[in-house]
Computed example of a mutant assay.
Amino acid sequence: MKTLKIATRKSILAMWQSEHIKDRLTTQHKDLNVELVGMKTKGDVILDTPLAKIGGKGLFTKELEESMLRGESDIAVHSLKDVPVEFPQGLVLAAICSREDVRDAMISEKYATFDELPKGAKVGTTSLRRRMQLLIMRPDLEIISLRGNVQTRLRKLKEGEFDAIILAMAGINRLNIKDEVKHIYPFSLSQMIPAMGQGALGIESVEKDEILKEIEFLNDENSVIETTIERAFVARLNGGCQAPIGISAKLKNDEIFIEAIVGMPDGSEFLREKTVVNKDEYKSVGENFANEFIKRGAKELLMRAEAMANAL
């Protein structure tokens, strides 16, 4: 029986995602044995420093990629929002799975909605993108860096360190944590634009035909179209996974509705645009949409955003 090895982070969410892909693979290929190879990444180990200060790109993928390049594993399962837009030679983004809920959500033990948060409320997130959009809506909030896995974040919330924390709805749904907290308030896309690829799983693979053929069934056409646009937008802006950039592409029938935001981590300055294009344009529209932002000074804005992030 052939064995396929999946490199995965050891967090509960990462393990859920890898087990999910393992189940799909073994259901599709009855003669395939799938093993999980758990490991820690730089982003898992360094928990006392904001993500933007410890390397930016590849914080949750580099060790998994090195495992594949050494031949110790064949594929890696990632949250696509954590996956850089460029890959080491010999590795490819082989599949993008169907998306979960792409929205961000506020979780609180005291407050049912975002508007109920009192003035000066302490809100936990490490994402510069979330920080920026929270402060655009509510400049009075105190945004505090919050690292660690989902369980660590929930514990800190329950212990009273925060009035609310921000998580992705995809993770909330996958781990089924609705019963563990009192209030979950999903932000609308008009309130908070998600990260590129949010809600989708990306399967990175060694560039071998036999492995690529085994996993190609995992591709979801709608997810591929939407995330191709989102990733191209971020790539054109040269923005890493931690940059204050939000981008959402939503396919409805033959039209794609796209909205993006780029700005300063403190919400003091930002660019926001939306557009609608035909489905046939998906391969070029991400870069073209980014060019419109660049004309309005997005690259200079992101350089200043990086300097501000390093000073936080």
Rank of each mutant, 00 (worst) to 15 (best):
K5R: 11
I6T: 03
I6W: 06
T8Q: 02
I12S: 13
W16D: 13
Q17A: 08
K22V: 01
R24G: 08
R24Y: 07
T26S: 02
H29E: 02
K30P: 06
D31A: 04
N33D: 14
N33V: 01
V37A: 07
K40A: 13
D44H: 10
T49G: 04
L51N: 05
K53G: 04
G56H: 11
K57T: 11
F60P: 07
F60C: 03
E63P: 04
S79V: 00
I96V: 15
C97P: 07
E100P: 05
R103A: 07
E109K: 03
A112W: 13
K119D: 03
K119M: 09
A121G: 02
V123K: 01
I136R: 02
R138V: 04
D140K: 03
L146Q: 04
G148D: 02
V150G: 01
L154E: 05
K158L: 02
F162V: 00
A164L: 02
N173H: 11
R174T: 11
K178P: 03
K178L: 12
H183M: 08
L189C: 01
M196C: 13
E204F: 08
E204Q: 12
E207K: 09
K208H: 00
D209N: 12
D209V: 06
E214Q: 14
E221W: 11
E221D: 14
T227L: 08
T228K: 11
G240Y: 11
C241A: 15
A243Y: 15
I247V: 10
A249P: 07
A249F: 10
K252T: 02
K252A: 05
F257H: 09
I258Y: 08
E259F: 01
E259G: 12
I261H: 00
G263S: 06
G267W: 12
R272E: 02
R272I: 05
T275Q: 08
V277P: 06
K279H: 04
E281H: 12
G286H: 06
N288M: 08
A290P: 10
I294V: 09
K295N: 11
K295M: 13
K299R: 12
E300H: 10
E300P: 00
A305R: 10
A307Q: 15
N310M: 14
N310E: 15
N310F: 13
A311D: 15
L312T: 09
